[in-house]
Design a protein around this nucleic acid. Structure first.
Lengths: 277, 277
DNA sequence: CGCGGTGTTGACAACAGTCAATTACTGTGG
DNA sequence: CCACAGTAATTGACTGTTGTCAACACCGCG
């Protein structure tokens, strides 16, 4: 069981949390130039937004302002409760999920919020939330209010940010549609493969995935709630996919070994990309 | 097979189409006062919007303006193609659905657009559609552009319409979340019951349902695509629910016989209503 | 009359949920 | 250092549900 010869170190596939999250007061949040634009909170946001629209220097500064006030959330804590009013936040590190609890005790995960994602669609500000948002790992968020203001055209001076925010809402919708299709019309292994491809693709956008894998902090139970399956079933699918050489999961790191067959199994279509105007 | 003693006449549960849709050039679209505010296109829109926000006389006139230009769509025709840019429309009569085709030939229905509904979320104007919108019956629509303008705050003189439009987008989202939960975490009969309750509730908002039933033009195949099941399964569920005295479907009319047990089976929660401010 | 779409039914196989028991790994407290 | 409990992963056996295949009835239409 101690065979651990060559596989990619976990440290190279972080969850978006800074290397030593508990200890040092990190330098990114202060005005110290741009210390770790590559891996830090600022870098994640800039990378995400830049895939959606070109940002001016002024807009870059707005983003830097966002990162000035980071809030931390312990795992399993609720960022938003279903049915309440709650201002949207922007994830800068860690994973969260939007989920609905059912009367019978089950729950259904509607989608995951990864670094760079909004916890809730900004367009619904002022309306009760339709689902709860829960931190799955140690989580760091910043307020999304400035983005909401920009998107509401209150601040027309930042067209790039406005476009990026609108596109984020749009992509959220696409992901929800994907989720419907997964649950309604795909086999269990197909669902799993599709979700893995989606996560890999989304994490790659913010630099949190390698070419063929990513760190995934989800338990089998979480995956089951997301895929509409039971825990046992999820486990068996993982085994099956590993035996078939499609992917491997070890120590919380997913390695996608055969993109071609994974995509075929998942009925995968190239994700939506936007020309960064 | 000819037992048809007392059951509600189909004419009293229309699809939102005017009683004699093929024949006479109907009076509603012209400026002839408000001829059939109760059953006509204008009436449907006003009723729907009024459940979401109070409308001023000026706003009422905007709605009347919408109805001046009605477009008709034959059954099975596409209102929007997935991946294209296409301006949203407002359904005033008939049923449509938003659906995604899969590479394997299957398809998944994401939701239904009933009279009073938008064919596509207005918030995504200018972005490619994530799914196709198809007429399921003879369909009548009007342009939703004025509503989109109002919602984008281009026209702040109509707060009621703006609120109503925002709420429509919000409700669309809720319905999509409901769809995810249905597909992911409910039994096949539960899914069916839940969908029937949803449709009844939504149709009741626009006056197209009786206390205990509504006209439903969906084939078993359509229902199967919406519920993530096979046609055979849908058929068996219908039989089962009828035998158990929960509901009855005859001649395209659904009669909900036992709301209590239907709601229990569906894990139903009271739908979201808004105080019409 | 034949035709296609729809609804219906039976038989069977494949799939997924449940129950139960075991293992591994963690952090805690003795 | 070890015992312990708690969480997660794993596996087997069994049951119930769902998909698939096939055949047939019904209906409106040309």
């Amino acid at each position: 069981m101690a065979r651990d010869p060559d596989h990619r170190s976990v440290a190279s596939l972080p969850l978006g949390l800074l290397p030593a999250i508990p200890g040092r007061s990190d330098p990114d949040s202060t005005a110290a130039g741009l210390p770790d634009r590559e891996t830090g909170r600022f870098g994640v946001l800039v990378r995400r937004l830049s895939t959606l629209a070109a940002l001016s220097a002024a807009e870059m500064n707005v983003v830097r302002g966002l990162v000035a006030d980071v809030r931390r959330h312990p795992p399993h804590s609720h960022l938003h409760l279903a049915g309440t009013l709650s201002p949207a936040r922007l994830v800068v590190a860690g994973w969260a999920c939007r989920s609905r609890a059912l009367p019978d005790g089950n729950r259904q995960v509607l989608g995951f919020a990864l670094p760079g994602d909004l916890t809730e669609p900004v367009r619904h500000l002022g309306l009760p939330l339709s689902c709860a948002v829960v931190a799955l790992t140690e989580l760091e968020t910043v307020s999304a209010q400035p983005l909401a203001d920009v998107a509401a055209a209150i601040d027309p001076a930042h067209p790039g940010l406005a476009r990026a925010t609108r596109l984020m809402a749009y992509l959220d919708d696409m992901l929800l549609c994907d989720q419907v299709v997964r649950l309604g019309r795909q086999s269990a292994p197909g669902r799993f493969a599709h979700l893995m491809l989606e996560l890999h693709d989304r994490l790659a956008c913010v630099g949190l995935a390698s070419d063929d894998g990513f760190a995934m902090p989800l338990t089998h139970g979480m995956l089951a709630d997301a895929l509409g399956l039971g825990v046992v079933q999820v486990n068996r699918i993982v085994q099956q996919l590993r035996r078939d050489g499609l992917l491997e999961i070890r120590d919380g790191v997913v390695t996608l070994s055969d993109f071609g067959r994974l995509q075929a199994l998942a009925g995968w279509k190239a994700p939506h990309r936007f020309s960064v105007q």
